[in-house]
Computed example of a mutant assay.
Amino acid sequence: MPNNTPRPNDSANYSERVKKTISNMEAAEEAMKSAEGKELASIKEKNARRENSLSDLSNEKDKKRN
């Protein structure tokens, strides 16, 4: 059975993670133009999770500042 324990976030990679997440969201927005049905719903769900991730990353960065 694979080990699925989360790895600690490396704050040095913060900006890289944000850029990658935004890039993925933009690519998904483009893909939504030609998607339909289950594929469209899946893309929308993934982008919602990405938005949550960006919010969490922002909160994480704010906590480290204080």
Rank of each mutant, 00 (worst) to 15 (best):
K19A: 12
A31G: 00
L54N: 03
N24R: 00
L57Q: 00
E45W: 03
A48T: 12
T21R: 03
L57W: 03
K61G: 08
A12L: 13
D56G: 04
R50T: 07
R17G: 08
A35R: 08
A31W: 02
L40E: 01
R7S: 11
N47W: 01
S42T: 09
R65D: 04
M25A: 05
P6M: 04
L57D: 02
D62C: 05
A31N: 01
E30N: 13
K46S: 03
P2K: 09
A12I: 06
I22R: 15
N66E: 13
N59Q: 15
N13L: 14
A31Y: 00
N9K: 10
S15Q: 14
N66L: 10
K19P: 03
I43P: 04
N3C: 07
G37F: 00
D62W: 15
S42F: 03
N9Y: 10
D62N: 14
N13H: 14
N3D: 15
N52A: 07
S53W: 05
S23I: 01
D10M: 08
K33C: 02
D56Q: 14
A41P: 06
N9T: 13
I43G: 06
L54M: 02
K44W: 06
D62Q: 12
I43T: 02
A31Q: 06
R49P: 01
K61S: 00
I43S: 01
P6Y: 09
D10R: 01
R50M: 06
N24M: 07
N24E: 13
P6W: 06
A35S: 02
T5Q: 14
N66P: 05
E39H: 05
E36R: 02
N13I: 09
R65W: 07
N3T: 12
V18P: 03
L54G: 04
A48C: 04
S55V: 07
E51R: 13
E39S: 08
E30S: 12
M1E: 15
A48G: 06
P6N: 10
N4I: 09
M25H: 03
R49N: 05
L57C: 02
R17L: 10
K44N: 03
S53A: 10
D62L: 13
S23L: 12
E39A: 00
A27W: 08
K44A: 05
